[in-house]
Computed example of a mutant assay.
Amino acid sequence: MSSPFEVIEVGGIPFAATNLEGATDWVVNDRREGAGTGVSVRLSNSYCVSAAHSDRDYSAVLKGPGVNFADGTPVNWVMRLIGGTASDHVGVRPVRGPSFFEATLDKGRRYGLRHHFVGTTEETLSLLTDRVEELYPGIEVAGTYAPPFAAFSKEFVDDIITKVGPSAPDIVWVGLGAPKQDFVTKAIADRTDYVAVGVGAAFDFVAGTVSEAPSFVQNSGFEWLYRLASEPKRLWRRYLFGNSTFVRLASRDIRKFLGRSGGRT
């Protein structure tokens, strides 16, 4: 499953120059045509860029096979500024994880695509399944699995693949949080013919177990601040250090771009 998208690098990480519609169409059309190869899809934000900067293994995942969509306005802002021709002729916009999740479920049901949800808790997965079946009549939820809490390892992925395999899904949605979910989607894609997508908190948002930011906040570039206020103990360190690192990396990219363009934007 090769990506048709041009790439714009932010902080050294390649992002697909596309938008929500383009990302959704690509995944759904590929699965309905029976591509037969696995692929890792990462919904990556400024935190992911920052984490990859200090983690060589994670950097290798994001720079390796698969596709990174810009899940977040800050990454998208930088892409549109420095993207040159790639951002000139394509509507480069954020591909927000929860929105991509719901859009793909909706479009995929028209073609009988089968989905398996991996992550969070059995209770949340039950609520999630009920909710998506209510929102998208006819959707095929092939199965769900809440793996035990454990670090990423071959054994951890073995367990997931064993549980998912009998359901024969087209797409495996993984809600384990970054960077862990991105290591997992790569391992699944390497060993199966599924599309494996890391979607972070999308399960909780759709299930209703975590409050989602209003649309105007999502579009403002400050959804991270809303989430920080909702879960300060869990997220403060991520956003404090992650955002400062991202600003430094993005500033370097912008300076390079301005140097090449002679200060013209």
Rank of each mutant, 00 (worst) to 15 (best):
W173F: 06
E122M: 04
E21Q: 13
R80G: 10
I161H: 10
V78H: 08
R96T: 13
I13N: 02
S261H: 12
T192Y: 08
M1G: 01
P98S: 10
S46I: 03
G84H: 10
R42D: 01
N29C: 01
G143P: 08
N76E: 04
V95H: 14
W224P: 01
V67W: 04
D159H: 07
S220K: 09
K256C: 04
S3L: 02
I161T: 07
G108H: 01
L127D: 14
M1W: 03
A229R: 12
K63M: 01
A146K: 08
T37C: 04
R248E: 13
L105Y: 07
R96V: 13
L125P: 08
T121A: 11
V157I: 06
A187E: 11
V132P: 11
S44P: 07
P148F: 11
P214A: 13
P74H: 01
D88T: 08
A146P: 03
S44Y: 01
G175D: 06
P214L: 11
E102K: 14
L235Q: 09
S50A: 15
L176M: 13
G83Y: 07
S2M: 10
G66R: 04
V206C: 00
T121L: 12
N68V: 05
D25K: 15
L228S: 01
S251R: 14
R109C: 02
S230C: 06
G200R: 08
V118H: 12
T18E: 11
D170V: 00
T85P: 07
L20V: 03
L62N: 00
D130V: 07
H53F: 15
